[in-house]
């Protein structure tokens, strides 16, 4: 299954829309897209996982790298709209406590943490 990645620039944030399974095969594409944004020191990055039916630890590792790069320049980094089985991967690795995870973009913005 191929991966589709779209970058949408909004007023307050940049939304990285990912569509497809994120695994060892496809995670380099996500990494490339994320690092493009962090190299530009994008102040707020939201990663939309609504259309990601599957993610393994290589996908999680890619997001950790994105978060760490963002932290270096004090940017904000959040994940939105995780499906239950994808959220489970974050819970298994206890990374649900590390990432800002929100039900959707509106919640991320309303919460004030993003």
């Amino acid at each position: 299954m191929s991966l589709n990645i779209k970058v949408q620039t909004k007023d307050q944030y940049v939304l990285l829309d990912i569509e497809g399974d994120v695994d060892l095969y496809s995670s380099p594409d996500v990494r490339e897209a994320l690092l493009k944004l962090t190299k530009k020191k994008t102040p707020t990055i939201l990663v939309n996982l609504e259309k990601v039916p599957y993610m393994d630890s290589s996908g999680v590792a890619t997001l950790i790298e994105g978060l760490q790069q963002c932290n270096k320049y004090k940017g904000k980094f959040g994940l939105v709209s995780l499906r239950d089985n994808v959220r489970e991967v974050f819970e298994l690795t206890r990374l649900d406590k590390i990432f800002e995870i929100h039900r959707d973009v509106n919640e991320a913005l309303a919460n004030g943490s993003i």
């Binding site: 630890s57 950790i64 790298e65």
Partner: peptide, 18 residues
Amino acid sequence: KLNDLRPGGLGVHIMKSI
């Protein structure tokens, strides 16, 4: 260790958890 926040090294933990 899970508090060692770095990319990679999560696979074995996931296998053993499941």
